[in-house]
């Protein structure tokens, strides 16, 4: 993560005890901070575990999620050695479904976060750097999207396009479409600040073109807040996916999603609470770990906010 070519005039450099003789950079400092932050360690470990689960659910589950493993006669049973989290209303193993459901949450969360960071970041960079009509145009477009309440907007988008092709793709599309303007604003503000710095003026004086200035000088110094916000957004996207699936417009059966599991189990919650509690627990833990991670990253990258 370290960037040796970064000018020493990089912003926000509080005094830090640095062991190595290497010149301190924002990134190396941040990494140094993060390694020692228990919040980051715990959140990161949980997230790594969840990523592993969603990458290889087959390694973690016990009985699988094939329809053949469901037995209606076994519906709504409690915890047994075979069914660690009990069984749901259709007699399917809750534990295995929770494991397989992680995949949807993780994919939707990460893909949406990355897509919005790239789109919002790129447009923010252009708008902030060029200013004038480019900025005005991009900012106004962003504001149009910004004005739509995100869950409502996503509901609308999914209700229109998602009827026949509901799935991870459409959910990501709906969430990204409404979330990129936030990133654009943050990026734009950071770029405008960075643009006025002496090292940019120096680079321009040396004859660097706009592309080189943007990529080599402004981006590395303006991307930190975007990373912080995207990390925090990751949790919001995971929650939004669950909410949309719960409302019936997101992921559709037979795909498995925690939101869907919660929706299916709620009618019989009093009779059989386990099929609702476990996906809800995993959803909460996932969001918690992402939020912890986001906090730690923010602290490290933006110490002034601490």
């Amino acid at each position: 993560m370290s960037n040796d070519t970064l000018p020493s005039t990089a912003p926000v450099q509080p005094a830090k005890p640095v062991k190595e003789s290497k010149p301190a950079s924002l990134w190396s400092d941040a990494w140094y901070d993060l390694r020692r932050n228990p919040v980051f360690i715990i959140g990161g470990a949980m997230l790594v575990l969840l990523i592993a689960i969603s990458a290889f659910p087959g390694l973690f589950d016990t009985v699988g999620v094939d329809a053949k493993t469901c037995s209606l006669a076994q519906a709504r049973k409690g915890i047994t050695s075979e069914h660690w989290f009990g069984t749901d209303n259709l007699g399917c193993d809750v534990y295995s479904r929770v494991i397989w459901g992680a995949r949807v949450s993780i994919i939707v969360g990460f893909v949406s976060a990355i897509v919005t960071a790239i789109i919002g970041g790129a447009l923010g960079l252009l708008g902030g750097f060029y200013g004038r009509w480019v900025d005005v145009l991009l900012s106004r477009i962003a504001e149009i999207f910004f004005a739509v309440p995100s869950i409502l907007g996503a509901l609308l988008i999914l209700a229109v396009i998602g009827r026949d092709n509901a799935g991870i793709g459409t959910v990501v599309l709906a969430l990204s479409l409404l979330a990129w303007p936030m990133i654009l604003r943050i990026m734009r503000a950071a770029v405008i600040t960075a643009k006025a710095q002496d090292y940019v003026v120096a680079a321009r004086a040396l004859g660097a073109g706009p592309g080189r200035i943007m990529i080599r000088h402004i981006l590395p110094n303006a991307v930190a807040p975007v990373i912080v916000v995207s990390t925090i957004n990751l949790g919001a996207f995971i929650a939004a996916e669950a909410a949309l699936s719960f409302l019936g417009v997101g992921i559709q059966s037979p795909q498995i999603s925690w939101g869907l599991m919660i929706a299916d189990a709620r009618n019989r919650f009093l009779e059989a609470p386990l099929p609702l509690l476990f996906p809800a627990l995993f959803l909460s833990l996932t969001i918690l770990s992402v939020v912890m991670l986001g906090d730690a990253v923010r602290d490290a990258l933006d110490p002034k906010l601490r």
């Binding site: 094939d66 329809a67 053949k68 469901c70 209606l72 259709l90 399917c92 037979p254």
Partner: peptide, 8 residues
Amino acid sequence: AVANNLRT
């Protein structure tokens, strides 16, 4: 439930 019956 019917769908699961048929799948199985």
